[in-house]
Each structure stands twice: as structure tokens, then as C-alpha cells.
Design a protein around this nucleic acid. Structure first.
Lengths: 238, 238
DNA sequence: GAGTGGTCTAGACCACAAC
DNA sequence: TTGTGGTCTAGACCACTCC
């Protein structure tokens, strides 16, 4: 038995739902903290924590001495770069699918060993696939999963959300990730996968995912199609 | 008189400093919360808030039931994509400089009006400049600042950190930003600024900065040199 | 000055990890 | 079972905005 409902998560969810359902426009002022306390029957700190979460996820912004306001500008044609997990992210809403080329068990080379903090004899799942959506190619992914933490994987699973599987079935708790990215000119082979020409531009993203316990379990490299993918990040500098 | 030292900021800073000064490696366990409370003479909540900040900025990670550990993997050749403000960001450490082409007062077109939520008659500063560092071109920036909030700007100021100026001199409190980006093929003109060829790849980042009060004050478009810039983000999915 | 968000405290209790 | 981080409370007081 895990995941008891935390009050601040519950409150955050309800406030967000309320904003969406009522279709509140950007800049709309919400109830003040005192009212929220009474409305949800929780302590001030709990409300503050809920609001903190909503603020960091870009739903609201708080202005000291003034109020709490709706932020909310969702560009549906842009991918949320912070919430992309390996590949699955927002696109789950779309009608997309994967074409899976490989799901193999391999021995990691030095580069993979270093990033996954494992030994040469440890088994690693190698997944190679392409993400489609609405008939468009979004990107080409090569991923390495530590078998120690992800004991089983096959083509069928890789045709859906691997992360959902990893979390729900393997019981892996995803904690944090390091994301490195840069722009490249495509080589002939990768261009072929993306249905683009050699030397066409692309965004190359390499990411290492860690469990909440700090163990790396997935090294992922995604090359995104430059015409079919746009990204956004809502950041908070306060 | 503003910016009284907040305890949680102070504690966060001291812990981070300690990690750096002692050169603690990734995975090193820190003192437990009880000890931190005694060590810094503050309440549990204050410690927790300090740790929360450090966790979100990628310095540490906390594992329930186990401890607090150093995260810290700074790739110095990568720019922190979350902390890049218009342009200034981490590079401030470098020996870099700007070449400023324009600092003009203009009337905003419809596109700018919409993003800065202003009227056609409002004055806007238009800044066009290039970022150099170690003899390399990092990127080409075009920025629009609302004169209402940034009453003065000139070429000399634009040769340094505009954001530092805006914060310290104009008293603008930077709150949050919306960042949109994608990969493009360079047009001839922009390629010229970056010392690249037409159709070479580039990362195009458009960002709208808001004050803590939620007012947009800067619309910025930066095109980064694909060979000279790499980025990283340390994210927290918990 | 009234109203609103932000900081800080002390302490109870819960959830998870390691032994 | 013990230790450790995480949640939640009630309440005092501070900092800022707006009238």
C-alpha cells in the first residue's frame, strides 16, 4: 500500500481543476489564502505548499501583498520540455504511436557504464524506436535501461509508454534527471530514420534518469525532428 | 531597504558553500535534519525549505528514510538553460563580452504588443547584440524592453548584463518567464551575424520575462551558435 | 491602515529505509 | 526497531500592495 493521498497534492489538484473547469483567463485573481484555508479545511502551510507546487508548474503566480493569479498559457503545439520522460511526455494525449526497431539485451560499453554507474558484466536493455504522431515523425530514440532495475522489457511494451510500465509494473520511483542537449547536423543514418536529409538540423537530447534513491536506471538519447517539434518551458526565477 | 536576509536562503547558501568548499563528491551523505537544525539554530521547517531549494536547483537530493546526498555535476562547458536570463546567465563567469549593434527606441508592432501586453503608442527599447566568449560567438540576440518598466537603456549598458542593470538600477523584480524554442535552418542574414553559412542549424529561443507582479517587460529572441553552445538542465520529477 | 502573501517556530505524527 | 526524511498543524509576526 503506497501513495496515500497527501493533502497538499489534493488541494493543488483541486485548485488546478477549478481553474481549468471554470476556464479562468490569465491574470484572473483567485481567492486569498484565508479563504482557501476555510474552503479546503487545511492549515496555512498546507495551502502554501499546494500553491508553491502550482506556481512551479506554471499554473499560477503569487504576488506578495496583492494576490494569487492564473498564469496558464498552454501552447498545445509545443512539447513541455521539463515533463518529457524519455519520450512519452505530453504526447500521450496525442494519437501517436511508436515504431520499435530493437529491444535487445546487451553488455554496456564504457560510455554507458559511466552514465549508468554499472559494470561491464551488468545486463542492459537496448531500445531503439521512433515516435510518430498524427502521421508525423517526432523523433528517434535510443535508450539503455539497467536490467537490475527494469528486469523485463519487450517490443510490445516499448510500443507504449516505457516509463508508465517502469513505474507501475517494475515499481521504480523516478526521482530526477540530468539533461544535456545541443543542435547537430544529421548524419545520413539518423536522417534516414527521421525521413530527413543528411546535414539537416536536429535537436539532440541526452538524458540520464535516476530513481528517487539516486540510482541511474536509464540513459536516453533522442534526436528530434526539427520541423515537427517545438518546445516550451515555464520557469520560475523567484 | 529591501532584501533582508531570509533564514532559509542563508542556510541554503551555507550548505551549498560547504559542499563546494569541501569538494564533496556526488553521492556523499550530508548531516541529517536533526543535526542541521542544531548546527544552524533554526526550525525544522526552515531547514526543510532550504533543502527544498537546494534540491530543485540540482545541488542535492533527499531520500526518505535514508538521508540527504550531494548531486552536483556541473558541466562547465554547458550552459544552464534554466538560468539563462535573456543572455547573461552562467557566461558571466567567462571572459565574454557583447558587441552591440543597436539600442533604439521604437514603437512595437502587433507581435510585440501582444507578447508584452502593451499598446501601439508605448515606447519599447530594441536591443540587437551578439554574445562573444573566448573569441567564440555564442549567439545573436534581439530584445524588446518596455520603457514603462525599463526607463533608460543605452549601448554602454547593453555591453554588460542588461538584467543586472534592470534589477539593481531600475528596481525590476524578475518573476517568471515563458520560453519557447525550436531548431531552425539559418537564413543568410542571421548566419552572417553568427559567422555561419546559410541553412546551417541553430537553436532559436524566444522568451517573455515577467516581473514578480506578472507584468511582461522583456521579449527576447536568441539564436544560438550550434557549434559553440551546449546546454543542460537538472530537473526534478518528484 | 487594511488586506494579502511570505517567513518562522515548536511540536506531533506519518512513511520509508536500513539494520 | 530505530533512524531518517516528509506531512501537517496552529499561531505569531514580517513585508509588500493598494487604497
Amino acid at each position: 500500500m503506497k501513495n496515500a493521498i497527501l493533502k497538499y497534492q489534493d488541494v493543488a489538484l483541486k485548485i488546478q481543476l477549478m481553474i481549468i473547469q471554470q476556464g479562468l483567463a490569465k491574470g484572473t485573481r483567485l481567492a486569498n489564502i484565508e479563504d482557501l484555508i476555510n474552503q479546503y479545511g487545511v492549515s496555512r502551510s498546507t495551502i502554501m505548499k499546494a500553491l508553491d507546487r502550482l506556481e512551479r508548474s506554471g499554473v499560477i503566480y503569487q504576488v506578495q501583498g496583492s494576490g494569487i493569479f492564473v498564469r496558464q498559457l498552454k501552447k498545445n503545439d509545443h512539447l513541455n520540455f521539463m515533463e518529457s520522460q524519455g519520450f512519452t511526455n505530453d504526447m500521450s494525449k496525442l494519437s501517436g504511436a511508436f515504431v520499435v526497431y530493437h529491444v535487445d539485451t546487451i553488455k554496456p560499453n564504457l560510455y554507458i557504464q559511466e552514465h549508468l554507474q554499472c559494470e561491464a558484466h551488468d545486463d542492459v536493455y537496448y531500445v531503439k524506436r521512433i515516435r510518430y504522431s498524427d502521421g508525423k515523425i517526432y523523433g528517434f530514440e535510443q535508450s539503455y535501461y539497467l536490467k537490475k532495475l527494469v528486469p523485463y522489457l519487450n517490443k510490445e511494451i516499448a510500443e507504449g509508454s516505457i516509463f508508465t510500465y517502469i513505474k507501475d509494473v517494475c515499481g521504480v520511483n523516478v526521482g530526477f534527471s540530468d539533461k544535456y542537449f545541443n543542435v547537430i547536423k544529421l548524419d545520413a543514418k539518423t536522417a534516414g530514420y527521421l525521413d530527413l536529409a543528411e546535414n539537416d538540423p536536429a535537436l539532440e537530447v541526452e538524458e540520464v534518469f535516476h530513481t528517487t534513491a539516486g540510482e541511474p536506471f536509464d540513459l536516453s538519447r533522442v534526436v528530434y525532428h526539427y520541423e515537427n517539434t517545438k518546445f516550451f518551458i515555464q520557469s520560475h526565477l523567484k
